[in-house]
Nucleic acid binder design. Structure first.
Length: 629
RNA sequence: GACCCCUUCGUCUAGCCAGGUCCAGGACGUCAGGUUUUCAUCCUGAAAACACGGGUUCGAAUCCCGUAGGGGUCGCCA
């Protein structure tokens, strides 16, 4: 029963931190992935009555029916900030029995890619965020109309052009949209001029507005490209934000903006226009998005008004930053690699031709690597290739990064929910069902937050510790299938179970076992003996450890039952017999078979390794680490 | 620069709307001890904040005004 004792999760006592009680909504667990079901969070803690704290949100009212949406643009991976926005929208829709729509805003034809769409769908699904309407995450081609769900599709803006045209026509008919033939270069020059003269850099519509029908026809005949601009009202615009309260922008701050791009830019609606038209067409009642959109909102409000459509409720959530206060972006990966590469080059100026050697090691053109290191390029592929050579771990930025690093989806949701919102009181650990039950806009904060990886890491570690064995094993297997297939292949049959048992208590992420168990995946001859470990554990005191190994070899080869429990017992008996502490025996053995002082319990380590490898390594070690003459 | 938003321990935050019970509570991190065959845990304890200045009040982290600082926006990107 030794094994049972050793393999129970680390946290036997009720944790110090308060953990939310599994919530009532959790009972219909089918909506969530297995690991997302309650039960992984078990210790009861009181949730204080969610006393609404003061919030100027009183300025706006949450709609009766929540029809929320998440509308990413498929120009990159799903960022944690985006994930949080999606989570908040989703939670509100689920809590109120509303609908949650996923709409892909691919109006930027140049930068949108199907791969990005696919990645976003995959990452949302992984987080346990599902949507009532939108593309199908499992479809061979999510763009395929037949696979999209919901009655108000299609859910790609590129597939809704007719609708935008119709609404544009309405604005033209009511005199709220007009053609503007100014080129970007002209506008830029005007802006610069205004700036040097100290005038406000506001677009002046008079010229375009005064164009006669004939003049317009002439310009078009010349083939001059034009955009459509929206005529802003000349009144102040107040928006009732659910998080920030009332925000008023004075009329003079407002300018006519482009709603339809020129043929040169690919035509079609701009974000502002498509966004508003679609929100209206899809019946969206709540627009909860990042605060960087706050200054767009007056434009959107004016557009709703001009189109005679009901404004949705707006809620602008604060932004998420790096611990150092900088904006969290993909560039951070390049920055981290650059810093490490520079350090490496500075440290070994004598060795090799520097950047060229690095480039070769990374399999990248030297010129590209040099440019990268000089900071002239932030190319992600170069960064990734280089990262392996300079031994730097890329910072996690996107949801996919955290997944690859072995974070649990429910933990990421938990942490993200907490970044900008809290249920009140001291409760910090909870599952998604709890979020659905308790989430509320009135408790969203109003100041920006910094992303604390340490805290997320601790949440993940504690959640893994609290998991029952089977869910942990299944999650670990799924992770290895996706990210460590070559290692998984070496863990046949119930050896994977044994592996999972041995590493469950020492895993803080699902990826840690892969790093920690290196010794398992190498050939017996490849074991590298850490000099410090050898000196301390084997050679010290006149080779005390080595002599233990000699005697241990005999004892172990006589062990018939090569199971963790029997091995543990065997080693313990040996220690007792020789009047040694367990450490005096287990440590030399550990160094002998792993090359380091770190591994799972000695019984697990030996069983995992197998009899043959253990004995081979034991002999090999004795000759390799013999006391120097 | 203009406009808008924000401001409690290093970080995320509770408390603020209904001022006293707050010499400000929790979490992560940090530090000091302890448990443990390594690792990872676990246990005990500690340091650590109301940005500043005015007001209102018997009393202000809480209400008002100002200052400073941080952030966002100012694209035919979203």
């Amino acid at each position: 029963m030794l094994r049972a004792e050793r393999t129970i999760p680390r946290r036997e006592q009720v944790p110090r931190h308060k953990v939310a009680e599994p919530s009532r909504l959790a009972q219909n667990g089918d909506r969530y992935p297995p690991y997302n079901r309650p039960g992984t969070v078990t210790h009861p803690a009181p949730v204080p009555p969610a006393g609404p704290r003061y919030n100027p949100a009183m300025a706006g009212k949450l709609p009766e029916t929540i029809i929320a949406r998440f509308a990413p643009s498929p120009t990159g991976s799903l960022h944690v900030g985006g994930a949080r926005t999606a989570l908040y929208n989703w939670a509100l829709a689920r809590q109120r029995g509303g609908r949650f729509i996923l709409r892909i805003e691919d109006t930027d034809v140049r930068r949108s890619t199907p791969e990005a769409t696919r990645g976003i769908l995959r990452d949302l699904a992984w987080l346990g965020i599902d949507w009532d309407e939108g593309p199908d995450a499992d479809a061979a081609d999510p763009h395929d109309l037949a696979t999209q769900r919901g009655g108000r599709g299609p859910y790609f803006q590129s597939q809704r052009q007719t609708l935008y045209r119709e609404h544009l026509q309405k604005l033209i008919d009511t005199g709220r949209a007009y053609k503007c033939f100014k080129t970007p270069a002209e506008l830029d020059a005007q802006r610069r001029q205004a700036r040097t003269e100290g005038r406000p850099e506001k677009y002046d519509p008079t010229e375009s507005l005064n164009l006669s029908r004939e003049q317009i026809a002439a310009l078009e005949a010349e083939g001059r490209p034009y955009v459509y601009r929206f005529r802003m009202p000349d009144t102040d615009i107040t928006i009732a934000d659910l998080v920030l309260g009332e925000v008023t922008i004075r009329a003079e701050e407002l300018e006519d903006f482009i709603i339809f791009k020129s043929s040169e830019a690919g035509g079609g609606p701009t974000f502002h226009f498509a966004n508003v038209v679609d929100d209206a067409a899809m019946g969206v009642t709540l627009v909860l998005r990042a605060q960087e959109h706050l200054m767009n909102t007056p434009r959107h409000a004016a557009l709703f008004d001009a189109l005679d459509l009901a404004r949705p409720a707006w809620a602008h959530v604060p932004l998420i930053f790096n611990p150092d206060g900088s904006k969290m972006s993909k560039r951070d990966k390049a920055k981290a690699v650059r810093a490490a590469a520079k350090k490496r080059l500075d440290a070994e100026p004598a060795r090799g031709p520097g950047p060229a050697a690095l480039a070769e090691a990374a399999g990248q053109p030297t010129a590209r690597v040099e440019a990268f290191i000089r900071g002239e390029s932030d190319d992600l592929d170069t960064a990734v290739a280089l990262a392996g050579c300079v031994e730097v771990k890329l910072p996690e930025i996107d949801v996919a990064d955290f997944r690859a690093s072995g974070y649990l989806p429910q933990v990421l949701c938990n942490y993200l929910a907490l970044l900008g919102w809290n249920p009140g009181g001291d409760v910090e650990r909870f599952d998604t069902a709890f979020i659905i039950e308790h989430f509320g806009i009135e408790r969203i904060g109003r100041s920006n937050a910094r992303f604390d990886r340490d805290k997320l890491f601790r949440f993940n570690a504690d959640t893994i510790a609290a998991m029952a064995f089977e869910p942990f094993r299944d999650a670990l297997r799924a992770h290895f299938e996706a990210y460590r297939p070559q290692l998984l292949a070496k863990l046949d049959g119930n050896r994977f179970d044994l592996f999972a048992r041995a590493y469950h208590p020492r895993s803080r992420t699902l990826d840690e076992p892969a790093e920690l168990a290196r010794f398992l995946f190498i050939e017996d001859e490849q074991v590298q003996y850490d000099p410090k470990a050898v000196a301390k554990v084997l050679r010290r005191n006149d080779g005390e450890g080595l002599s233990v190994l000699r005697r241990l070899e005999a004892a172990l080869s006589g062990c018939d039952d090569w199971s963790s429990a029997a091995l543990e017992a065997c080693v313990a008996a040996f220690a007792k017999e020789h009047g040694l502490g367990m450490g005096k025996v287990a440590q030399p053995l550990r160094v002998a078979v792993t090359g380091t002082t770190v591994s799972p319990g000695i019984g697990d380590t030996l069983e995992l390794l197998g009899r043959e490898s253990t004995l081979t390594r034991l002999r090999h070690c004795q000759s390799a680490c013999a006391q120097p003459a």
